Simulated assay, not measured.
Amino acid sequence: MNSELSALLGDLVTVTHRLTRLAAQATGENTSPAAWRTLSVLTSAGPMRLGELAAASRVSQPTMTKIVRGLNELEWIKRIADSSDARAWQIAIAPKGQIALDDWRFRLGVALEPLFADLSSREVDVLAEATDLIGDRMGVQELAA
């Protein structure tokens, strides 16, 4: 195992969590982080049953039930019949939810832009490359899960 790489990845997780909290606070948004995480999971993984969604979001099933209830009231998710079990339902992101998530992500970027406004074009390229690299690795991980 490469301890230097492990330390770097640990630092990356820590700094990105701090960056996420800073951006969320700067937007003044009251929607819970768990709601945004749920919409993100549905966007990347597609429709899933409540228990699967709870596991993917790392919350209990009763907690996910509350999150889904709130998202349903906002019309940000929709329930669809599970094609593999006529008695079951899957949760999917609704068009209003996708719009809200896209807007939230944009506002996060706007909130953080002043912190990074003085980056050189090379540094912006490094961020873009790092984002692509991490996104590609996460895509590989999601496929393996």
Results as ranks from 00 to 15, higher is better:
L108T: 00
A92S: 13
D82V: 04
S84C: 08
S83L: 11
S84W: 08
D82T: 00
R87K: 15
R105Y: 06
E75N: 11
D82H: 03
G70P: 04
A86Y: 09
Q98L: 13
A100C: 11
K96M: 11
A86E: 10
R107D: 09
R105C: 05
R105P: 02
L101P: 05
A100I: 03
K96D: 15
A100M: 12
L101N: 02
W76F: 15
R79F: 13
W89E: 11
L71I: 06
I93C: 06
R107N: 13
R79S: 05
A92G: 07
Q98T: 10
R107E: 10
E73D: 08
A92I: 07
L108N: 01
G70C: 07
A86N: 07
A86P: 01
R79Q: 08
D82K: 03
I77H: 09
D103I: 02
D85E: 03
L101F: 13
L108S: 01
L74N: 08
D82N: 13
Q98H: 09
R79K: 14
K96E: 08
A100Y: 00
G97Y: 06
L108H: 07
R79N: 09
W104N: 01
L74A: 14
Q98I: 02
A88S: 15
L71Q: 02
P95H: 10
E73G: 12
A94W: 10
A81N: 11
P95N: 12
I77Y: 00
P95L: 07
I91F: 01
L108I: 00
S83M: 02
A88T: 04
S83G: 03
A94T: 07
I91E: 00
A86S: 13
S83R: 15
R87V: 04
I80P: 12
F106C: 02
L108K: 05
A94Y: 01
I99V: 12
W89T: 08
D103W: 04
I99P: 01
W104A: 05
Q98C: 06
I99G: 00
G70Y: 01
D102N: 13
P95I: 09
Q98N: 12
W89Q: 08
I77S: 05
Q90I: 02
W104R: 08
L101H: 03
E73A: 14
G70V: 01
I77K: 07
A94Q: 09
S83Y: 06
R79I: 02
E75V: 09
Q90G: 00
D102S: 13
A81S: 12
A86T: 07
W89G: 00
I93W: 03
R105I: 04
N72V: 07
E73T: 08
